[in-house]
Design a protein around this nucleic acid. Structure first.
Length: 757
DNA sequence: GTTCTAGAAC
DNA sequence: GTTCTAGAAC
């Protein structure tokens, strides 16, 4: 609209009249609205009026009507106007937006800063214009923020700037301060955060993607060759032993590269150099299980299409051994037809256990067309993967599951001892079982393709979901605490090989060749991925604990020595009579050593190897129910002693202690051991996974949906009943000791609180 | 998981 | 000066 009027004016040759702006500030008390206006008015050469409801009443509290009137007259006088009041919901803003017109743009500047900050600023004010200061401020800010509604362009704004931190505010200040009488600023929504941006950035950072623009390196075949050739591996990695003679090792020459280009849907160079998390998978059920190739290729395409965009910056690669593979050419043709992004999905010819070392393809997760017993042998992909991975894979697989149903998958972290990890950089094998159409094999579906197609779809869904969850965990860790390994990528290697030479990229002389950089980069990747399974702390202490069982071949996650306490109790509860309350066949009940409430118990599984929620599968449903029932029995006992207590039962999404344990905790949180943000948030954010929800998720989806986002633990402190925010733990504790507000709706449902208040 | 403590915030 | 947090060490 505005543009049309402007263009029309231009067309008529009229001079464009200078436009006034109404800037509606949106923010809680203490968010810095007045300061913002004052600073702009100090530097901007444009005439401004600040309409402030707190001052407009001349001592008495002002009204909205007074503000509107005053704003309209300022606009008439050619001034631009700040509406300095909270304007937190749409209704409050509505009348002010109507001040806009052909020569008046309406902007919103949203000061959406943490509640904690606004409260602390409000509290310490001594001469606030609105008389909002001292103790009342927190309650007021909290109440106001509850009805916060971020402005939308559809309300009639031509420009919205969302500021969520001090630097956003500063940038916005700069924009408005620089505004002269004739200047305009671009229209649109600024500062809105893409919810995926953080994760994407994490992956990019972790893979150092920015340094490897595929287009630039694609033509540089020699660089591709040297970065993946065994010579480089051996140079940098003296402990790495290979059976083959180095000279006979197939190196990716330009000719090879040409061949790859021919085979892949699009040019192979970018595939080879692309460091995005990559899943290589064989076609499921089409070989020994004799599934119809046409139908199978349709299902592959369907599932790939469904996931390829959902998964973000990752690659799915369908692999087969031969150039003459029918399924590969079918899928390739259909992928082209469907216009599937060939950088995210393509077909590839090669041995799935040697795609990096022999074909130069970076990948980190492979799928195995497994048998239902999850055992080696049987020929085909299964035999080849178990052979290549060594015995460690069988052991690690056993830890995850004993068998597999058709249509299901199970992800197994590959032990660092496996050649697939050391040679190829593969961190996980996902076993998948497809439907069987071969009458020579057990559980044949007798040509029932209605069931068969459904099972095959399920199999791919499960496979891609497992891959997604691995990628998510890796991205989280990559941007998380493993900075040390990332900056010192060879730390892992140094340790494993017993080589103690310090290698710090900062102190080291510049790498002699660029390709060494490439090597480092791929190593960084491996080290970071490895970090998923073993926390960095353990690399430092392993030397002192070489006999410790945690470095055995089945290593799926290394826990620090302090994290073993529950495991030891679970294995030998009779030796811990001092803390253990009850010993049953499957579980042990004990007091939390550092209770975070008046009543705080742990129901501990006695299953060895079941360390946290991520490992929980359908076969554990009975155990989960037992844990819940035993917890509830103790709740009843506690309620007989004190009927005023309210309990919640749940798991920590990312526990610090090994051995799956259910927290049974009263909701008073009256404890001297509750000392920091992490303590509070681990029981009062989504990090706390209600037992009822875990049971439901596992029975519906076969596993608990991952949500152990570390950032949950550092979010602002909010009361679990009235949801008010508090600046620190002591204040929060003093609030919760008095707060009798009803619990939030979500907690009152599905039996999350016992008994329901 | 806790303890310890430097230094930021008040 | 005192309170509080956050990171390292265990």
């Amino acid at each position: 609209m505005e543009m049309d009027i402007e263009n029309a004016a231009k067309a008529k040759g009229e001079e464009i009249k200078e436009k006034s702006v109404v800037v509606i500030l949106v923010g809680a008390p203490g968010s810095g609205k007045s300061t913002f206006c004052e600073q702009v008015m100090r530097s901007s050469t444009r005439p401004w009026a600040r309409i402030c409801q707190d001052t407009i009443g001349n001592g008495k509290s002002g009204t909205k009507a007074q503000c509107l009137k005053s704003a309209a007259s300022a606009l008439k006088g050619g001034k631009s106007v700040f509406i300095d009041r909270c304007n937190l919901d749409r209704e409050q803003r509505l009348e002010f937006v109507k001040l806009g017109g052909p020569n008046v743009d309406v902007h919103a500047v949203v000061l959406d800063l943490p509640a904690k900050l606004c409260i602390s600023r409000s509290v310490k004010r001594t001469e606030h214009e609105g008389k909002l200061q001292g103790g009342k401020a927190a309650a007021v800010v909290n109440r106001m923020l509850q009805k916060k509604e971020l402005p939308k362009l559809s309300e009639g704004f031509t420009r919205i700037t969302l500021c969520q931190n001090e630097s956003d505010v500063q940038a916005c200040l700069n924009t408005y301060s620089a505004l002269g009488p004739m200047d305009t600023v671009p229209n649109g929504y600024f500062g809105q955060k893409n919810p995926d941006a953080k994760i994407q950035l994490g992956i990019m950072k972790f893979l150092k993607k920015a340094e490897v623009p595929a287009a630039e390196t694609i033509s540089d075949a020699s660089r591709i060759q040297s970065s993946f050739s065994p010579q480089v591996l051996q140079e940098k990695n003296p402990g790495y032993k290979r059976a083959e003679n180095v000279s006979s090792f197939p190196v990716n020459t330009a000719k090879d590269l040409k061949e790859c280009e021919d085979l892949a849907v699009c040019s192979a160079g970018s595939h080879i150099l692309n460091d995005a998390p990559t899943l290589a998978f064989p076609s499921i059920s089409t070989s020994d299980f004799q599934f119809d190739l046409e139908k199978a290729s349709d299902i592959i395409i369907e599932k790939v299409e469904e996931f390829v965009n959902k998964l973000g910056n990752v690659r799915l690669v369908l692999v087969d051994l031969s150039h003459r593979s029918k399924i590969l050419s079918l899928v390739k043709a259909k992928a082209t037809e469907k216009n599937i992004d060939s950088s995210k999905f393509f077909t590839f010819v090669g041995d799935i256990t040697r795609l990096c070392s022999e074909r130069g393809l970076h990948y980190n997760v492979i799928a195995n067309a497994a048998n239902w017993r999850l055992k080696p042998g049987g020929g085909g992909v299964n035999a080849s993967i178990f052979n290549a991975a060594g015995p460690a894979l069988e052991v690690a697989t056993k830890e995850q599951a004993k068998s597999l149903h058709p249509g299901k998958s199970v992800a197994v972290p590959l032990p660092s001892t496996s050649p697939l990890f050391t040679r190829e950089g593969i961190t996980h094998v996902i076993h998948v079982l497809g439907p069987n159409m071969n009458p020579q094999r057990p559980n044949c579906l007798n040509n029932d393709y209605i069931v068969g197609c459904k099972v095959l779809r399920d199999a791919y869904t499960s496979l891609f979901e497992d891959f997604a969850s691995i990628v998510k965990t890796q991205a989280k860790l990559a941007k998380g605490k493993n900075v040390n390994l990332v900056t010192n990528p060879l730390g892992l290697q140094e340790h494993n090989e017993g080589v103690n030479t310090k290698h710090s990229p900062n102190n080291d002389q510049k790498s002699k060749r660029e390709d060494v950089d490439d090597y480092d980069r791929s190593k960084k990747c491996k080290a970071s991925l490895y970090e998923v399974e073993a926390n960095i702390h353990d690399f430092r202490t392993e030397k002192e604990h070489t006999n410790n069982d945690k470095i055995d071949a089945s290593m799926t996650k290394a826990w620090g020595s302090w994290a073993q306490a529950l495991y030891h109790i679970a294995m030998h509860p009779e030796k811990h009579r001092d803390v253990v309350l009850e010993i049953l066949d499957d579980v042990v009940i004990l007091h939390d050593l550092y209770p975070k409430a008046r009543r705080h118990l742990l129901v501990l599984t006695r299953y060895e190897g079941l360390d946290c929620l991520t490992a929980v599968r359908k076969e554990h449903l009975n155990l989960l129910r037992t844990m819940h029932d035993v917890g509830m029995r103790w709740v009843e006992k506690f309620l007989q002693e004190d009927a005023s207590l309210i309990f919640r039962l749940g798991y920590h999404s990312g526990p610090s202690m090994r051995q799956l344990h259910l927290h049974v905790i009263s909701q008073d949180f009256d404890s001297k051991h509750l000392k920091n943000k992490k303590h509070w948030n681990s029981f009062n954010t989504a990090f706390f996974y209600d037992s009822v929800d875990v049971i439901e998720d596992v029975s519906n989806h076969g596993k608990a949906t991952l949500r152990d986002d570390e950032s949950l633990l550092s979010t602002e402190l909010r009361c679990h009943r009235c949801r008010s925010a508090h600046p620190n733990i002591p204040r929060l504790k003093s609030h919760i000791s008095n707060c009798r507000a009803p619990f939030p709706h979500s907690l009152l449902q599905s039996g999350r609180l016992v008994p329901p208040p």
